[in-house]
């Protein structure tokens, strides 16, 4: 079975982003970029499926600028077999991304798609669900455990109140939550090997889907600043202030 893993290049999760003064977006010049943490978890899961003999091939797909090749290389160094880059400098919306991925899946015919539940830049938490809808495949989102037997996947999901387990027929889309696994560090030999693995470079136009934006960003501003930083000396002072100053007790 082939596993397809879409991966996104995003601002590194340690970077505290700053809003541009002209309010058109956030300043990404000279900022460290990395693979979206949830995508890393998805790649790890796919590679583990291959190591367990459940999967035969792991294909990663990224839609983004030429530098997204680095993100694909990271996945290849973790153990994925080959990559597809749909190169574009446009910031595509989840719907357009889902349509492009659906087109790739039409060609690749994977047995399962494993992907991150959310990208930490747009925080949309949408592409996986939309992809499943476009393909008319079942979806199992926010996965903390995936077990594949035959043509079914049993997926434990993190939901409000606890956990839910679903059984879905394959092919299906599964999105990874933080506790699915802990991604490995790529070893130096694997990083070297990854350089020789193939990456196919495509353009959105190759797939003939409508990627026109539906949303217009009117402005991006900083959230209101909190006036924090005050300290208290003791538990007694804390209780007195909570009761008398803040009135929250």
């Amino acid at each position: 079975m082939k596993v397809l893993v879409p991966v996104k290049r995003v601002v590194d999760y340690n970077v505290k982003v700053r809003v541009k003064s002209d309010q058109t977006g956030v300043d990404l010049a000279n900022v460290k970029m990395s693979m979206n943490p949830f995508c890393e978890i998805a790649v790890e899961e796919a590679v583990r499926l291959k190591e367990k003999g459940v999967a035969t091939e792991v294909v990663v797909v990224s839609i983004g600028p030429v530098q997204a090749q680095e993100t694909i290389r990271t996945a290849l160094a973790m153990g994925a077999d080959r990559g597809i880059l749909i190169q574009t400098d446009e910031d595509l919306e989840p719907l357009a991304v889902a349509k492009l991925l659906a087109a790739v899946i039409g060609e690749e015919a994977p047995g399962i798609v494993v992907m991150g539940k959310q990208a930490i830049d747009g925080d949309n938490n949408a592409v996986g669900q939309m992809l499943a809808a476009l393909l008319d495949w079942p979806q199992a989102t926010f996965a903390s455990k995936i077990e594949i037997t035959g043509d079914k996947a049993e997926v434990t999901r993190e939901v409000d109140g606890g956990l839910q387990t679903l059984s879905v027929d394959l092919p299906a889309v599964v999105t990874a939550d933080l506790r699915l696994n802990e991604p490995r560090y790529a070893s130096l030999p694997n990083i070297m090997k990854a350089k020789k693995k193939p990456i196919d470079v495509k353009a959105p136009g190759d797939y003939g889907v409508d990627t026109a934006p539906r949303l217009k960003v009117l402005k991006v501003v900083e959230p209101p600043k909190r006036q924090g930083g005050a300290k208290v000396e003791s538990a007694a002072e804390l209780v007195s202030k909570l009761k008398n100053e803040a009135g929250v007790l």
């Binding site: 601002v11 505290k16 982003v17 809003v19 956030v26 930490i120 830049d121 747009g122 925080d123 960003v217 009117l218 402005k219 991006v220 501003v221 900083e222 959230p223």
Partner: peptide, 9 residues
């Protein structure tokens, strides 16, 4: 967006 570090209209 960005973990609440920016607000997008």
């Amino acid at each position: 967006i960005y973990a609440g570090n920016a607000l997008e209209t």
